[in-house]
Write a protein that binds this DNA or RNA. Structure first.
Lengths: 222, 222
DNA sequence: AATATATGACTGACCGGTCAGTCAAAGTCA
DNA sequence: TGACTTTGACTGACCGGTCAGTCATATATT
């Protein structure tokens, strides 16, 4: 065992490798894969699918172009996998959240503020815009996003709305038919940030609060 | 004159020219330009900027590729002009609409239904998605869209909201600070149509009505 | 005939994808 | 444990197809 450790140390000194390479081959491979995913996400967001060059992704990931093809079949499937890889953990985090506390409004508010923190002002937000942008040309991506995010989100929101109606917190009964309305401003916020923030910064937090006031009625408690 | 007609007839037979050529040169040039714009719009919407081939635009417009360059400097400026060309008339139509009648709600409702008819289920709607998609890479386009559509739309909506508040039709005073909220579901509808309509058709009309109920209170009059 | 337009074959830069070769790490043996 | 062999991850030069933009030629108009 100590020999293995020493061997690793030697290897590290020998090559001019950067930072903290995981020891085993598998670990290093995983790191590289992660670097590629990270770089690809960045490039795809910045340039869109068609205009992104694999060479640039490789360079940004600190990897040779060929390496990319050890991890992904081709550019297209890389893009599709990418979306899955990035979105799945977000969905998990966002769905395992709800601690069944307090009023429905509090629940929704917690969810909203979490969304702002986790998505709206993150690379993740740009990813949403990217999906909107490329969706029509990548049915697989649109399908996946619908299944994993949209339909789930709708179901969750609808449940929340119905609970709110049952408890008398929400008046407008028809809202349950269109959970999109509840989410719409959040999506607008995401799009606004990446298109118009430079022209006119938007206080998304505040906008969402006003929107919730609209749905639940003005808040008394400060 | 008859000779000219005969000559034209011959030309038409000789080349496999189409349809109804406007008589004057200027007219024919305008027609061609329009055909190119139409074709380019179609292609850009379907494939996005980078993936669109000029050859395809030319073919669809029934024109040689070189002809495109008689009307536009290059692909990029063609795209930018395209957005202007298509959007300007829509803005004009939508801004010259409001006949100063009835309640604010009626005004907004008229505007909404007009939006649905003129934009949501049209190529124009797809254009909005295209702008969202390509905006970050075409600052000129994003700027233009912000100036001509977003800021104007916001101002108009804000005016309407303030009127509604003054007349007591709208309770939530803060709404005037975020006219985006009023518009959000409309944009969602546009995006939904082009991404998820196949999975789950959305009754945009009805959704907008529910949203207005939320803002103005439930409607009594059927 | 002279001019204005339109054409589409052509060019060359560019980029996705490949693959022969390299070398650190894992495996084997004494 | 140290030396020798095998493996396969990684590299990057290269190839071939593609496509924006050009321009000599052809066609229409005056």
């Amino acid at each position: 065992m100590p020999s293995a450790v020493r061997a690793k140390g030697r290897a590290l000194e020998a090559s001019e490798e950067a930072a903290a390479p995981g020891s085993s081959r598998a670990a290093r491979a995983a790191e590289r894969r992660a670097a590629i995913v990270e770089a690809a996400l960045e490039e795809f967001i910045a340039r869109g699918f068609a205009a992104t060059r694999l060479d640039d992704i490789a360079k940004r990931a600190g990897v040779a172009k060929g390496t990319i093809y050890l991890h992904f079949k081709d550019k297209e499937s890389m893009f599709e996998e990418l979306v899955r890889i990035v979105i799945v953990p977000v969905v998990e985090r966002l769905t395992t959240l709800p601690p069944p506390t307090g009023s429905v409004r509090d629940l929704v508010e917690a969810f909203a503020s979490n969304f702002l923190k986790e998505v709206a002002n993150t690379r993740r937000g740009d990813l949403v815009r990217l999906i909107v942008a490329e969706g029509p040309r990548f049915p697989a991506v649109a399908d996946f996003y619908y299944r994993e995010v949209v339909s789930r989100g709708m179901a969750g929101m609808r449940a929340l709305i119905e609970l709110g109606i049952a408890r008398g917190e929400i008046q407008q009964k028809n809202l349950a038919r269109f959970p999109q309305i509840l989410v719409a401003p959040a999506l607008i916020a995401v799009i606004w940030q990446s298109l118009f923030a430079r022209h006119f910064p938007l206080d998304a937090q505040e906008m969402l609060r006003v929107h919730l006031d609209l749905i639940f009625g003005e808040r008394r408690t400060t």
